[in-house]
Simulated scan of single mutants.
Amino acid sequence: MRHWDDYLEQGIVGMARGGRLSWFSGHFGAALLAGYYMIKENELPPHVIQGIERSCNAYIARYEEWFAPLDDEQAEPELLERFVAGLKANTEKLRSSGHGLALGVLALKALNERPDLITP
């Protein structure tokens, strides 16, 4: 079983790789980020933590290539500005769903915690 601290990095990597296929596939990485923050920011009973870990590990097992560690790339924190600009664009008009903003804010939170993951 994986330790939940790994879900932050795997979530960002999974969002990036899954999102290359379709916007919907970014949900799987976002699920790991949501699991990470649910466990980290809340005092959950052990059986709830275990359930979150089972769900996250199932996504990792199903889409292993999406969650594999990144190649060694130099972090480029200045790329965060482009990311924030994309989030801003999602706020400029009403949309039928909030995925672009909701998942983007989750990723922004993770990237602020781990700027070393801001890579091309």
Rank of each mutant, 00 (worst) to 15 (best):
R95T: 07
R114M: 07
I49F: 07
A58C: 02
A85I: 04
G35H: 04
L106C: 03
P120F: 12
E41D: 15
L21S: 10
Q74P: 10
A16Y: 05
L70M: 15
E43T: 12
E78W: 12
P69K: 10
K93W: 10
G18H: 02
K40V: 01
A68H: 05
M38Q: 14
H99I: 09
L33Y: 04
L8R: 12
E41L: 15
P69C: 11
G35Q: 10
Y59E: 00
A16P: 01
A30D: 06
G11L: 08
Y36R: 14
L108V: 10
A68W: 03
F28C: 01
K40D: 02
N42I: 06
A85P: 00
H99M: 12
S97V: 09
V13W: 02
Q10E: 07
L87M: 10
V13A: 03
A75H: 09
L87T: 07
N42A: 09
F67H: 06
Q74S: 12
A75G: 05
G18M: 07
G18L: 07
H3R: 14
Q74N: 14
E64L: 01
L21E: 11
P46G: 12
H27M: 12
R114C: 00
R20A: 08
N42V: 07
M15E: 03
S96W: 01
Y37L: 01
P45L: 13
L21I: 13
V48D: 06
E9N: 14
A107Y: 01
I52S: 07
A68S: 10
A31D: 11
D71M: 13
L80D: 01
R114T: 09
L80M: 13
A34K: 14
W4H: 15
K109P: 00
S96P: 00
D116A: 08
P77G: 07
N57S: 10
I49L: 11
L21M: 13
S55T: 09
G18Y: 00
Q10D: 04
Y37A: 02
N57K: 11
L87S: 07
A107Q: 11
D116R: 13
K109Y: 00
D116G: 01
L33I: 08
G51R: 15
Q50F: 00
I60H: 01
G14N: 04
F24W: 14
H3F: 07
S25E: 08
G98M: 15
A61V: 04
G29S: 09
I39Y: 00
L80W: 06
E73G: 11
G29A: 05
V13Y: 03
M38N: 12
M1T: 13
R95Q: 09
L87Y: 06
A68L: 11
L79G: 08
N57R: 06
I118C: 04
L8W: 03
K88N: 07
Y63A: 11
M38H: 13
G14D: 01
S55P: 00
K88A: 11
G26W: 02
P120M: 14
L111K: 11
P69V: 13
E78P: 00
A102H: 13
E73R: 15
R82C: 02
V84G: 03
G35D: 05
I52R: 12
N42D: 08
R114S: 10
Q50L: 05
G19P: 02
K40S: 07
W23G: 08
E64W: 06
R114K: 14
